[in-house]
């Protein structure tokens, strides 16, 4: 049911070619923000226009697309983007991480380790890790050029001095291949270790800011820290109440007006797969098989 009024995956071929050139440059210079001529898309800026353009430039008719937001396939924005590509590209879609060839994500890296040949496309709101220390683009560009990253460590120093630890919980800055400091998009820092040495291609698209950056497969990605205050990935100290997983990132859900809570995997596919394999959590129905 492809919409014939538009080119395959919405964008015209010239635009896709332009984006692919930016992607190749980004892959060649890991962590470097490549300016690209971001197009106006039929969804608002800040809602994934960068990710959508990158996905559109990567998709082939044979691809199987998975779209997640907050780790889940069923959140409204994920549904909306998945439908967009169903309509304009007619590609097959899937919710299974292992089956997908291209995964567009907002705010999470899937729990299931990715494999060679897969592409993970991140939606990025502010690609510049130095932006909140220095608002001027002309200045931050210079800082990257000259590897002047002292200011970034001043921020981390201040966190420790004030809070006893680095008080950045998501969009935690990383250094890629020992060169560029990069914002990994607002993924929780729990996901940061998955950025490193990942066999998949990781592409980051920021539509409003017109920047693309990338982490090639098996790259060295280090979360910034101090020797004596090393980076630590953290999450809620619970197990998933549906699948019993102790090692996945959890959403906290308030289940009544007395403040009762439960914790469930934010990665819905991961949780469902575990339940299908028979794993049980604290609140799973007794004896029932899903």
């Amino acid at each position: 049911m492809t919409d014939q009024a538009y080119n395959f995956a919405y964008l015209d071929e010239q635009t896709k070619r332009m984006i692919r050139r930016a992607l190749l440059k980004a892959l060649a210079i890991p962590g470097y923000q490549v300016p690209f001529a971001s197009r106006e898309m039929p969804m608002p800026y800040g809602w994934g226009t960068g990710g959508v353009q990158v996905t559109a430039a990567c998709l082939t008719p044979e691809d199987r697309l998975k779209v997640i937001d907050q780790g889940a396939d069923d959140t409204t924005n994920a549904v909306s983007i998945r439908r967009f590509f169903q309509r304009t590209a007619g590609v097959e879609t899937t919710e299974r991480t292992t089956d997908a060839t291209v995964i567009q994500t907002r705010h999470r890296i899937p729990e299931q380790p990715l494999a060679e040949g897969q592409i993970l496309v991140y939606q990025v709101p502010i690609p510049e890790p130095l932006r909140f220390l220095e608002p001027r683009e002309t200045e931050t560009r210079k800082m990257h050029e000259l590897e002047e990253y002292g200011l970034m460590h001043v921020k981390l120093y201040e966190d420790i001095a004030r809070h006893g630890e680095i008080a950045t919980a998501y969009a935690y800055p990383v250094r890629v291949e020992g060169r560029y400091v990069m914002d990994p998009s607002p993924i929780p820092k729990f996901d940061n270790p998955k950025l490193a040495g990942n066999p998949a291609i990781q592409l980051f698209g920021a539509g409003r800011e017109a920047r693309i950056h990338a982490v090639p497969p098996y790259s060295d990605v280090v979360s910034l820290d101090f020797e004596d205050h090393p980076f630590a990935a953290s999450k809620a100290d619970h197990e998933c109440d549906l699948c019993g997983s102790a090692g996945s990132y959890l959403d906290e859900v308030i289940t009544d007006d007395r403040g009762t809570r439960m914790f469930v995997c934010s990665d819905t596919d991961f949780c469902a797969s575990r339940q299908a394999q028979g794993h049980r959590g604290r609140l799973s129905p007794q004896g029932a098989t899903p």
């Binding site: 800040g46 809602w47 937001d69 907050q70 998501y170 929780p188 906290e252 934010s266």
Partner: peptide, 14 residues
């Protein structure tokens, strides 16, 4: 307007 989109994951981390 994008700040009305879900931010559960970031908020959870915070």
């Amino acid at each position: 307007e994008h700040i009305k989109l879900p931010h559960y994951v970031d908020f959870q981390a915070e």
